[in-house]
């Protein structure tokens, strides 16, 4: 796999979109790994420094999908 930005060999892939990134172009961003309910509140397991390519746009805000409600 090659880096999305420079076509050199990638060292990892973006946690958000899967693009390949090399050492020069890799960025970091927190990633919500898992959410669970506990003690009356929702908690998140977070990877503090997940790889991020800087090319995709993980939305900072949630999107409603009531179609999935039962």
């Amino acid at each position: 796999m090659v880096c999305w930005h420079c076509r050199r060999t990638a060292v990892g892939s973006c946690r958000f979109c899967g693009r390949g990134v090399c050492e020069d172009h890799v960025q970091e961003q927190p990633f919500v790994l898992e959410l669970y309910r506990g003690a009356g509140t929702t908690r998140a397991l977070v990877v503090e420094d997940a790889l991020f390519c800087g090319a995709c746009t993980p939305r900072p805000d949630p999107v409603d999908l009531p179609e999935l409600d039962e």
Binding site: V32, L35, R43
Partner: peptide, 17 residues
Amino acid sequence: VPVQTVVATALGRHPAA
């Protein structure tokens, strides 16, 4: 617990619905 957030508030209970 190392990671505690109010992400839940963010994800579920907003008037956006």
